[in-house]
Nucleic acid binder design. Structure first.
Lengths: 238, 238
DNA sequence: TAGTGGTCTAGACCACACT
DNA sequence: GTGTGGTCTAGACCACTAA
């Protein structure tokens, strides 16, 4: 937490989560906060603008910053989060079963992606269970030119942890699409569905800090277990 | 467009969309931009940070700001956008059929919302078609204490246009959940589905600038026509 | 009128990438 | 070393809210 504004953001977020600043109350004004934290007003404003985009507060001109009642939305299901992280922060009783690790080319047509040459990747297929019920079937294609090798133990634990903390990769952004499709026989079997039921498919492409494409993922969700929660701010279209 | 940084943001976004700054190239540096636009560097940085969060560029420390290849993600399906706006910006051949306008209480249990007293609302049910195929069934509950009356003509045109441009309401943010459910007979009939097929339900609560809750919406999507596109930046969980 | 957030400035120092 | 983006500052003026 080297940045001032980041430290202030987390301090304020904590205080909101623990109701030191209760829902519906106003935070101290920006000038008061800048005195409190011994920093300039612009730095305070950066921290507040983080709180704003993450749905902690609403700023009202001429009045102040109100604490919102949206704590439940603050875990970033709409962001990029690994299963292990989610699991940890939600205290779920979950497990991961590695079904397959092998070298494959990325099935580009699935991802609506153009490439002159085939993309070599490590294919990892994993089944995620919560309380012993299958919830998600994850299919990851991790590009070989970035990560040459992936071991069984890493796949069973957490790919993101390995990439970020062992390899020092900085994951930056992703594009996602969510659609509803018919399952294949295999998918239905693994997720314990009958073949009439649809599946929810979340496909994403993940990029590193330097804009290198790095991973393709296909997450197949049981429809009855799927829930996507989002917080959005209005933005006019021009 | 009174704000400098907003004007600069739109100018740069336009130039990216029209490939004046091609995909993969670098924008001029921040100091160059501040000379170009005759403004301070911090103002430029605000504009760039908008471009960043909307997926237009990626900033790389020590190098510059790279133009990303994500134009298709820039219409905010993940934001708050009205059907009419989307329609206009996507040039679709669409129509809206108003099925019902009447006074109702908000069915709070559907939205997992607590309230001591029932919430009086105008209920508007509309069926959205594209190329004469039913796509979405929208059910809006607009709270009476904010908007007392809604006419048939307004519902047939655009609620958001009415709220923002006629009534001067400022819509600020919303919470959304996406789930997959079984249709009722009526829903299946309206969307021309067989009752085996699932539906995608997007439920949202929309708030005004002053944090007043203002609208509940239930959007029922045909599963085969549903697609949700998102751009997300990585944020660590603490 | 006093206090609030919204915008903008001109400067400073730092960490990082490239050559 | 030079140029880049990342952070931070101290001050200014504005528009809005409330008493």
């Amino acid at each position: 937490m080297q940045n001032k504004f980041n430290a202030i953001y987390h301090d304020l977020a904590d205080k909101i989560i623990h109701h030191i600043y209760p829902v519906g109350s106003y935070l101290p004004s920006e000038t008061q906060l800048s005195e409190l934290y011994g920093t300039s007003r612009e730095t305070i404003r950066k921290a507040l603008s983080e709180l704003l985009t993450n749905g902690f507060i609403q700023k009202i001109r001429g009045k102040g910053s109100v604490v919102l009642n949206l704590q439940r939305f603050n875990f970033p299901v709409s962001g990029i989060t690994s299963f292990k992280e989610l699991n940890k922060s939600q205290h779920m009783n979950s497990s991961t079963e590695v079904l397959c690790i092998e070298d494959q080319h990325v099935p580009l047509e699935n991802f609506d992606y153009q490439s002159a040459t085939p993309l070599k990747a490590t294919y990892v297929e994993r089944l995620r269970k919560i309380d012993n019920e299958p919830i998600v079937l994850d299919r990851d294609y991790i590009l070989k030119n970035i990560v040459p090798e992936i071991s069984q133990t890493v796949a069973a634990d957490s790919l993101y942890d390995y990439f970020e903390n062992q390899l020092g990769l900085v994951i930056s952004y992703a594009t996602k699409t969510i659609t509803v499709e018919h399952p294949t026989k295999e998918e239905a079997k693994l997720l314990e569905l009958n073949e009439q039921q649809d599946i929810v498919v979340v496909r994403s492409q993940t990029y590193l800090e330097d804009t290198t494409l790095f991973q393709f993922t296909e997450s197949i969700h049981r429809p009855d277990k799927f829930s996507f929660v989002d917080f959005a701010r209005r933005q006019k279209i021009n």
